[in-house]
Amino acid sequence: MAEIDPESGLKLRKLTELKPTAAEEYQEAMLNRVDYFSKKRDSTFNSFVENTIVGSLKILLDLKVKVEEMLGDDNKEKVHEMIDKLLLFGL
């Protein structure tokens, strides 16, 4: 709903109330774009290898979020530091 600013007389929209469907619309816009590109033969969205990697990363991320919840903030920091060092090791 728009309010009217008493000083300028301008219409002001309040951002605190989003449409209940706002999140869905965002996701839909993204997925429509995927559909658009998927219709093209050489699109990255049709790559079996890439789709498999993305699927695996999704599973890993779900798992990671759950493990981190159990770890607590302090331990999480320590684990992150260690993994970062490991991933930079030998480069």
Binding site: M30, V54, L57, K58, L61, V65, D84, L87
Partner: peptide, 20 residues
């Protein structure tokens, strides 16, 4: 990819696209 993954906080479609 593994480094980016470990600093990602939320799963979901948006992050799937980010990984692409």
């Amino acid at each position: 990819l593994l480094a980016m993954l470990q600093h990602t906080k939320k799963p979901g479609k948006l992050m799937e696209m980010f990984s692409r």
